[in-house]
């Protein structure tokens, strides 16, 4: 395991250098400029994939000496998916799904990391407007004919967040961002093995005195590699042919098993 680790470390160091160079070169824009780098632009899923750790590095432009360190919030959102949240209740003695809400095109993976607990560094209005934190993240539900987000205490919404968090698909870490130097920050992102496949957006916001003074975006891809990709794309593009191949394969296994144990 030390091989890939050290390689990742070296890549990180190189990335960090680029980030620092970029920060030095950036001009004096009105908004504070933030430079961002991620340890892997692509996470490849192989047959032994069981999750991945990514490092996110960034530098915020310092506004001269003596400026206090900023507050940093990193939001990582995976490919969007629509989820149905069902509520079970008892009908003639049996527990069954009776009521459901659809959460439309919400991230299949969502991680919010910050340098401090969000309420300590910004006013509630700012946090809501900037969608900082899981409780303030906009999750659109279909309510009858309308589409709306609901209050944070809605039972379906809290249950959805709780279940996604239990599967490590939604994460919130108020201490996840570490300031290495007053304006240099770093965070570790843990992707679980069952994280959805697709494009992940990384969005960083830098706050000073309770206001967002700078932001930056980057992205990375989670993709199946080689054999896993071939199987999945085969199954999706040509279901019948895939089914026939699997069926034929199982008949061959059955035949071989019969042949193998025939004598005994």
């Amino acid at each position: 395991m030390s091989g890939p680790r050290s390689r990742a470390g070296r890549r990180l160091a190189a990335a960090l250098l680029c980030v620092l160079a970029g920060a030095a070169a950036s001009g004096a824009a009105r908004a504070e400029s933030v430079v961002l780098s991620i340890s892997q632009g692509e996470v490849l899923i192989t047959s032994s994939f069981a999750g991945a750790d990514l490092a996110i590095f960034g530098v915020a432009e310092a506004k001269g000496a003596g400026t206090p360190p900023p507050d940093v919030v990193i939001t990582v959102r995976g490919p969007t998916q629509t989820f149905l949240t069902w509520r079970k209740s008892q009908v003639i003695g049996l527990w069954m799904n009776t009521d459901s809400r659809a959460f439309l095109d919400v991230p299949g993976f969502l991680s919010v990391m910050s340098s401090r607990p969000a309420p300590t560094f910004a006013a509630p209005e700012v946090l809501r407007a900037e969608q900082i934190g899981l409780d303030r993240f906009l999750l659109v539900q279909r309510v009858g004919p309308d589409f709306a987000d609901v209050v944070a205490s809605d039972p379906f919404r809290t249950a959805f967040l709780r279940i996604q968090a239990a599967h490590a698909l939604y994460q919130e870490d108020p201490g996840g961002v570490v300031l290495l130097a007053p304006n240099v920050f770093q965070a570790q992102l843990r992707l679980p093995g069952h994280a959805p496949i697709g494009r992940y957006e990384v969005h960083v916001k830098v706050l000073r005195d309770g206001r967002v003074t700078g932001e930056a975006r980057t992205h990375f891809e989670v993709a199946r590699s080689g054999f896993e990709q071939s199987i999945a794309s085969f199954a999706h593009t040509n279901g019948i042919l895939y089914g026939i191949s699997v069926a034929l394969g199982s008949l061959i296994v059955g035949f071989l098993a019969n042949l193998l144990f025939r004598k005994e």
Partner: peptide, 20 residues
Amino acid sequence: ADLVRPPADAFIVAPVEGPP
């Protein structure tokens, strides 16, 4: 038993494939 017993969690989340 699972049908009659109150479930540990009354909610379940299931992804929906395709357009809802």
